[in-house]
Amino acid sequence: MTTKPRGRPRSFDRLTALEQATMAFWEHGYETTSVSDLTRAMGISAPSLYAAFGDKKALFEEVVQAYAVSYGAYGGRAFEEEPTARGAFGRMLTEAADVFTDPAHPRGCLMISAAINCSNPEVEQALRDRRNSNLTSFEERIRRGADAGELAAGTDAATLARLFGAVLQGMSQQARDGATRAELEAVADAAMLAWPAVPAATD
């Protein structure tokens, strides 16, 4: 006598559903994306969503984690692969211009745009913490560049990091407002003019 497996097998691909949820949150933000919007985008029922992902907040947290290592990974790659701090920041902004305007998905940055008009304090704080963590990584990369002699002694790493964070956030919003890749690349080039000059060599 054979034993029937317990429960019904899941009738959808979890990774595909997560990607579809990412697109919904990215396009509409956390606050205005309802569970009905999510189930419609993911092609699943509400009970299936809750069973596979938990509630809306838990699903969004998983979406953000997946986004950070996929669409949002360009900055980390630039910091790891570019030999200089200036090269890393220039590449980060240029690649952001590409990602933010790619027609294959919603415009801008999910972690920036999803926080707009968010009334859930936990979600808002989690997104703020991620953005602040990015600023910390910016500052650390600048300090490493300074230690390597790429920037003058006394360079204000914290302010420079915050400047590039502001540029990145502004590029995201401008992409949402319709700025083209070429226009954002021009912004990136202009922002790099603010990079401190390399210290002059001394005999």
Rank of each mutant, 00 (worst) to 15 (best):
L127K: 01
E139G: 05
F53L: 00
G149C: 05
Y71C: 13
A104W: 04
T3M: 11
F138M: 08
R86L: 08
E139W: 01
K56Q: 06
A148L: 11
F138C: 08
M171Y: 00
N120P: 04
R131Q: 10
R130F: 12
F138V: 03
G7K: 10
N117F: 12
P47D: 07
D129R: 09
Y30E: 00
L184T: 01
T202K: 11
A52I: 07
D102S: 06
E95I: 01
D147R: 12
E61I: 08
A66N: 11
Y30D: 00
A182I: 06
T136L: 14
R181S: 05
A197I: 07
T39P: 03
T94Y: 02
F25S: 03
A104H: 10
R176D: 06
A146T: 15
R10Y: 00
L18T: 06
G75V: 09
Q65S: 14
P196V: 04
W26L: 04
T33D: 07
L151M: 11
T84K: 03
P103M: 04
S34E: 09
L160F: 06
A115F: 00
N117A: 13
D147P: 02
A97G: 02
D129S: 10
L127D: 01
G178L: 03
T159F: 13
F25W: 05
G87Q: 05
F53D: 00
M92C: 09
S34T: 15
W195I: 06
V63D: 04
A157M: 08
G29Y: 02
A157C: 13
E31V: 10
L15V: 13
M1K: 12
E80A: 14
A126G: 10
I112H: 10
Q169F: 06
R162H: 15
T84L: 06
F164C: 02
Y67W: 15
A52F: 03
E62T: 14
M111V: 11
G87V: 04
Y71T: 15
S48P: 03
D177G: 13
T180W: 02
T32C: 12
A104R: 14
A157V: 09
A85N: 04
T101V: 07
T136C: 10
A166T: 13
L193I: 07
L151D: 00
G154W: 07
A78T: 02
A51M: 13
P47V: 05
P47R: 06
V69G: 05
T22S: 15
E82M: 10
M23L: 14
F25Q: 03
G43C: 08
S172L: 01
Q65D: 15
R143Q: 12
D55K: 07
R176W: 05
L184Y: 01
C118T: 15
E150D: 07
G72N: 06
I116Q: 13
L15D: 15
D177R: 15
W195G: 01
S113C: 10
